[in-house]
Simulated scan of single mutants.
Amino acid sequence: MVLFGTLVNGGLIVIGSMLGLFFTRIPERYKETVMQGIGLVVILIGLQMAISTDQVIIVLLSLLSGAIIGEVLRIEDVLNHFGTWIGSKFATTSDDVSISQGFVTATLVFCIGAMAIIGALDSGIRGDHGVLITKGILDGFTSLVLTTTLGMGVMLSVIPVIVYQGSIALFATYIDKWIPEALLNGLITELTAVGGLLIVAIGLNMLKLTQIRIGNLLPSIFTVILIYYIYQLI
């Protein structure tokens, strides 16, 4: 089953979030310190991914073009509005802003990264769900901690996670017919690097050191594909 790994990943996020709802009474100073710890680890993960690039110019051009597209489309605002709207449908006591923040933060943390892309590709190309199941375990624990601070919105992130990873897995069942393996491996490297920088930005925002509009940088995940292809032609 192509979507098995994605469904397991989504299920573990839901379980972790449900458990997190029972720990919301944890003192605020504990939550703050734990979130800072997660933020530091997120930055470390992002840096490890970012330095994997073989061509920094591809990463730079991808982020620049992605940022322009994101600002024009105002993706950050769309994500926030969607998080607020969907939160209002599922919750009546939570603050809309908190729900939106939890939804957007968790969606970015769970969707952007090497494990999401490579795991989904493995599921589609080789039928190997090991990477996504491992990711699901990590996401489940992370969602538990995030939910204690950001609330119900974290659980709602399971929707884009399943759509995103499921789409990649389904696409991957045909990708080997269109893209040579060597080209695909190089593309994954640059995708990982771009995603890593976005994850670093998430960590910095979690530490409240910056207010980077990460949503408006998301198109770079897609522009890197075109830029990498053009670079290979040149």
Score class of each variant (00 low, 15 high):
Ser157Tyr: 02
Met155Gln: 06
Ser98Thr: 15
Gly153Trp: 01
Ile199Asn: 10
Val109Phe: 11
Gly166Arg: 15
Val145Thr: 14
Val131Pro: 00
Gly196Arg: 13
Thr142Glu: 07
Ile168Phe: 04
Ile125Gln: 09
Thr189Phe: 00
Ser167Arg: 12
Leu209Thr: 11
Gly102Cys: 06
Asp96Cys: 02
His129Met: 06
Ile179Ser: 10
Gly166Gln: 15
Gly130Val: 10
Pro160Val: 05
Leu207Phe: 04
Ile99Asp: 02
Leu198Asn: 04
Val161Asp: 00
Leu108Ile: 15
Val104Cys: 10
Gly87Ser: 11
Val97Lys: 15
Ile214Asp: 09
Ser98Glu: 12
Ile188Gln: 05
Thr173Asp: 10
Asp95Phe: 00
Ile179Gln: 11
Val154Trp: 05
Ile179Pro: 01
Pro219Gly: 12
Asp122Arg: 14
Trp85Met: 09
Gly196Leu: 07
Leu121Cys: 04
Val161Leu: 12
Trp178Pro: 00
Phe141Pro: 01
Leu170Gln: 06
Thr142Arg: 09
Thr147Lys: 01
Val145Ala: 14
Ala169Pro: 01
Val97His: 13
Gly196His: 08
Thr142Leu: 13
Gly203Met: 10
Ala106Ser: 14
Leu183Lys: 15
Val158Leu: 14
Leu198Pro: 02
Leu207Arg: 01
Ser123Val: 02
Ile214Val: 15
Leu217Lys: 01
Ile168Trp: 08
Ile168Lys: 08
Ile137Trp: 04
Ser98Cys: 05
Ile125Ala: 03
Thr210His: 10
Ile118Leu: 15
Val154Ala: 05
Thr92Asp: 13
Leu170Asn: 04
Ala169Leu: 03
Pro180His: 13
Val161Arg: 00
Thr92Tyr: 06
Phe141Tyr: 08
Glu181Lys: 14
Ile202Tyr: 03
Thr107Arg: 02
Phe141Arg: 13
Ile175Ala: 14
Leu209Glu: 05
Val200Met: 13
Ala193Cys: 05
Ala91Pro: 00
Gly140Ala: 06
Thr107Pro: 02
Ser98Met: 12
Ile112Glu: 03
Thr105Asn: 14
Ala120Met: 03
Val109Trp: 09
Leu138Glu: 06
Gly124Leu: 09
Ser88Asp: 10
Leu187Glu: 01
Ile214Gly: 12
Gly153Thr: 00
Ile202Asp: 06
Pro180Phe: 08
Thr93Gly: 11
His129Lys: 13
Gly136Asp: 00
Gln211Cys: 00
Val97Arg: 15
Gly136Ala: 07
Ala114Arg: 13
Ser157Asn: 09
Val109Ser: 12
Phe141Ser: 11
Leu218Val: 12
Tyr164Arg: 13
Val158Phe: 07
Leu150Tyr: 02
Asp122Phe: 03
Leu132Ile: 06
